[in-house]
């Protein structure tokens, strides 16, 4: 799926590792002690307790704090596995092949691969996302919202206590042409349940003056993008606001830490609209540090196609994520016919 639901087009699903598709899933019974269900996808078993997720597979196990895991899993599910690789941390993650998805431990970690300890299995996207959705739904307590900034939500700790289905089933915005046009994604307002965020109370809410001649009301159109972003109730969740063929403007608001290390399978651009974000950039395959990029309002930078990145934002910031949604690009990058850096001079 990634950012647009038609991203796969008519292209054959790539399978560079030649892995078979596994269709073996299990939803476990409710644990008497914690109240949570366990889950299994292929060889990977998932269990949560009061503080951690425990991931195990034949020959290994791994754990993460449950808050970090739920924040990462929430994005992976909401983004339809996004573009390329979503590293939940330095060990566990998924790689999207747009119709099929690889789940891995250690595949993007130099120590694991050098020792031959990685495990990768492949699943159909719709089957995997169904299990992942159930996992994030079952493991999210009533006071916790994995999409929210840490200061705007409760904590996920402890045994099972209610649920927050409304928060974990949010639909991401995917405008077909531009936000605010008739029949397209609507603007945000107090009335529609999107108050101005506490970090953006100083952002002007004035709408553009639009003077359309009779008959052109549908084409003479504008909206206040910054006001729209100031009313976002989620963080680190790019949503499509305007579209020129495969060119997708996906602005988002960012606070605290990007919950995943995103290893894109194509070049991605950032335009900092407000405030500051610092990006840790690592090698996509090994995780070795490559650079730290500090972006302030007006800065533009690309993320090459062979890296992974993770952002840090103290004051909630507005970021324009710019994607090329063409389904042909990943294979072009893999085959070397597309550059990993878009511009040379």
């Amino acid at each position: 799926m990634a950012m647009k639901d038609n991203d796969t087009g008519d292209l054959k699903v790539a399978n560079p590792r030649g892995l078979p598709v596994v269709s073996d899933f299990e939803i476990g019974a409710i644990d008497n002690e914690t109240g949570y269900r366990s889950f299994r996808v292929g060889s990977f078993s998932f269990r949560r307790d009061e503080y951690f997720v425990r991931i195990s597979w034949p020959g290994g196990n791994h754990q993460m704090p449950i808050d970090a895991f739920l924040r990462a899993m929430m994005r992976d599910v909401a983004w339809g596995f996004f573009y390329g690789t979503v590293n939940f941390d330095g060990v566990f993650g998924t790689t999207n092949y747009y119709g099929e998805v690889e789940v891995f431990v250690g595949a993007m970690n130099d120590a694991y691969t050098s020792a031959g300890r990685e495990l990768i299995e492949r699943f159909r996207s719709e089957e995997l996302i169904d299990v992942f959705r159930q996992m994030v739904d079952d493991w999210t307590n009533e006071s916790y919202d994995p999409f929210a900034a840490p200061m705007e939500t409760g904590t996920p700790w402890g045994t099972k206590k209610g649920s927050n289905n409304e928060a974990v089933s949010r639909q991401r915005v995917t405008a077909q042409r531009m936000v605010g046009l008739a029949g397209d994604a609507p603007k945000r307002s107090d009335e529609t349940g999107y108050p101005v965020n506490r970090a953006f109370r100083d952002v002007g809410q004035d709408e553009p003056e639009v003077h359309a001649e009779p008959g052109f009301e549908g084409e003479v159109a504008a909206f206040n993008l910054f006001a729209y972003l100031s009313r976002s109730d989620v963080t680190w969740n790019p949503s499509v606001c305007s579209v020129v063929r495969d060119s997708l403007f996906c602005p988002t608001t960012e606070e605290f830490i990007l919950p995943v290390e995103h290893g894109n399978d194509r070049v991605e651009w950032f335009l900092q609209l407000s405030d500051e974000i610092v990006w840790d950039v690592k090698d996509g395959k090994t995780g070795a540090p490559r650079a730290v990029v500090t972006m302030r309002a007006g800065d533009v930078a690309c993320m090459p196609a062979d890296i992974r990145h993770q952002g840090y934002s103290n004051k909630r910031a507005m970021l324009l994520v710019w994607e090329n949604g063409s389904p042909a690009i990943p294979e072009m990058v893999r085959s070397g016919t597309a550059p990993v850096v878009p511009v040379r001079w």
């Binding site: 952002v203 002007g204 004035d206 709408e207 553009p208 003056e209 639009v210 003077h211 359309a212 001649e213 052109f216 003479v220 159109a221 504008a222 909206f223 206040n224 993008l225 910054f226 006001a227 609209l273």
Partner: peptide, 9 residues
């Protein structure tokens, strides 16, 4: 028609 844009529009 005409549109008047300010910062962020």
């Amino acid at each position: 028609g005409r549109v008047r844009l300010k910062r962020g529009h």
